[in-house]
Amino acid sequence: MTALFDTLASAGLWAATLRIATPLIFGTLGAVLCERSGVLNLGIEGIMTFGAMVGWLTVFNGGDLWAGMLAAALAGAAFGLLHALLTVTLGLSQHVTGLGITLFASSLSYFLFRLNVPLASSPPTIEPFQPLSIPFLSDLPFFGQAVFTQTAPTYLAILMAVFMTYVIFRTPLGLAIRMTGENPHAAEAQGINPVGIRYGTIMVGSALMGTGGAFLTLSAFNSFFPTMVQGRGWICIALVVFASWRPGRALLGALLFAFFDAFQLRLQAALGGIIPYQIFLMIPYFLSIAALAVMARRARVPQALMQPYRRGER
């Protein structure tokens, strides 16, 4: 019992929570943005993989760390454009298109990575983002060390959640996005261009997903390896439902999820001899499924989610 308390009281646990949450915050915010305008983006897993690869490769080839983040965001936006072409302009099944983009983006990442970096016993590494101590705040006892000594992208993710809440609920653009997600025909009658809005949200949302992937290779780890995203994209899709399509709750959901993940990692270290580690690794996936089951009926889904919009067609 005291061991449990010591774990909870350790600054390391809370620091790890923020670190684990960062890619999930980016990914979930990106997925929230897409779905708010009525488009499910199951390309997320592949886009995160591609972002992780392209961000890492940019830095490996001599680029700045922020250039890596930017490259990941742009690559994400490019896949977003492809998703928008297929689901908005052509109105194809959002499920199948998204899965197709995931399969395409992840296999293309592995291909381009292997083409640039030959197979080696230990993958080459880069110098990742260093923790950024915020003056004064990081000197605060306990929380200062846990919360205010993260790398820059973590702060960016949190600011992004605040910014997105503002945009979606407090600006005319946010209203247009929400209207498009609820009823694109009504939105069009109000002079809003639903097609333009959807293209915009999918591309910006996918850019956020790419950035989340790049955090994995540029901050959390320092190398790229296939399958490193490990279902984080799918977890983000579950977190969107858990967050009822609200950016603020997406931030909370990602933090809560990351807390459980960080906690199970420490339990694993403590109980590894008694309980097999695989049980602990299953927990995040079961948590996501449980969160879906609890929230699916309560959450208010954007009414036009997964419905293609064609002018003059019902």
Binding site: L42, H95, Q230, G231, W234, I235, I237, A238, V241, Q278, L281, M282, Y285, F286, S288, I289, L292, A293, A296, R297
Partner: peptide, 19 residues
């Protein structure tokens, strides 16, 4: 519970391999 089966069946892939 009206949970979209795409995400749940996908997440179970990871659980199955761990199992």
């Amino acid at each position: 519970f009206s949970v979209d089966e795409v995400v749940t069946s996908l997440l179970l892939n990871f659980v199955a391999v761990l199992f």
